[in-house]
Amino acid sequence: MHLHPPKPRLFHISEQPGISIFTPRPSPSHFDNITGNLVFAINDQLLHNYLLPRDCPRVTFYAGANTTDADKQRFMGNTTASHVVAVESGWYQRIKETTLYCYEFLSDDFVLIDECAGYYVSYKPALPIAVTVIDDIMAALLSRNIELRFMPSLICIAEAVRDSSLQFSLIRMRNAKG
């Protein structure tokens, strides 16, 4: 008897309500293993990385299997959260005022392309099976065992995290303030 791992719950976060079909599009980022237009989805474990306004820069990280004790202590030593999401203080008001729509997909047509980031892709159109309105982003984030950090600038922490042994995502950093 073969035991199959449970299928992941997959989501797409948007500021646009009422999307009835997600059509494959060019990837906004380069991935060596992407060969055409696609639909992106994020798994439930890392959904918090996207529970923010689309253009909001963020540094997200967590301790992985190969994270050193020194890096765990340096970046996460004083938190009981499993993940950290750092955003710029200047985004506070926009985060408070933004409504997000969390679309859920069946995972059948999706394949994992980045385990660290929780990214899945499909080359086929995807129909949402459910949508959840998120009108309190901070409450949604803080219900997920993460530490939300507001910082004047993300530049230094982004560099430090990138050079560490942590698992991380640097998202929309082109919008970060110096």
Rank of each mutant, 00 (worst) to 15 (best):
A86K: 00
Y92Q: 08
P53R: 06
H48Q: 07
A65V: 12
Q45R: 11
Y62D: 11
Q93T: 01
N43H: 09
V39W: 01
G64K: 05
P53E: 06
F11P: 02
S89W: 00
A86G: 00
N43F: 04
I34R: 12
T80P: 02
H83R: 12
T80Q: 15
T60H: 12
Q45D: 10
V84A: 09
L46Q: 09
H30C: 13
H12L: 01
A81K: 02
T67C: 14
P8T: 00
I13N: 04
D55K: 12
I34A: 08
H12P: 03
A63K: 10
P57F: 02
R9H: 01
A81T: 02
N43V: 04
W91R: 03
D71M: 09
P26G: 07
D44K: 03
F61C: 07
Q45K: 09
Q93N: 06
H48W: 04
L38K: 10
R58L: 04
G36W: 14
F11K: 05
D71R: 10
W91C: 05
E15P: 08
N49Q: 13
V39P: 01
N33I: 11
G77F: 03
P53G: 08
L38T: 04
H30V: 14
T67Q: 12
V87R: 01
C56M: 07
I42W: 04
K72R: 15
F40N: 12
A81W: 00
G36P: 10
N78D: 13
R74C: 05
I34M: 06
Q45N: 05
L38C: 12
D69W: 04
H30D: 13
Y62C: 10
F11V: 01
G77N: 07
D44T: 01
P28R: 15
F75R: 02
V87C: 01
V59C: 07
F40G: 14
P53L: 06
P17T: 05
P8A: 03
N49A: 14
H12I: 00
Y50D: 07
I42R: 08
K72Y: 07
T35C: 13
P8S: 01
P57E: 06
P8W: 01
A86L: 00
S29L: 11
I21P: 07
T23D: 03
V59K: 06
N78P: 00
V59Q: 09
C56N: 09
P26C: 14
W91G: 02
L38H: 11
N33G: 06
K72G: 09
T60Q: 15
N49F: 10
P24C: 14
S20E: 15
P28I: 10
P57A: 05
P26S: 13
N49L: 06
F31R: 15
D55H: 11
G64V: 02
N37I: 03
G18C: 03
T23W: 04
V39L: 04
T35A: 15
T80D: 15
A63Y: 05
T67Y: 12
F75C: 02
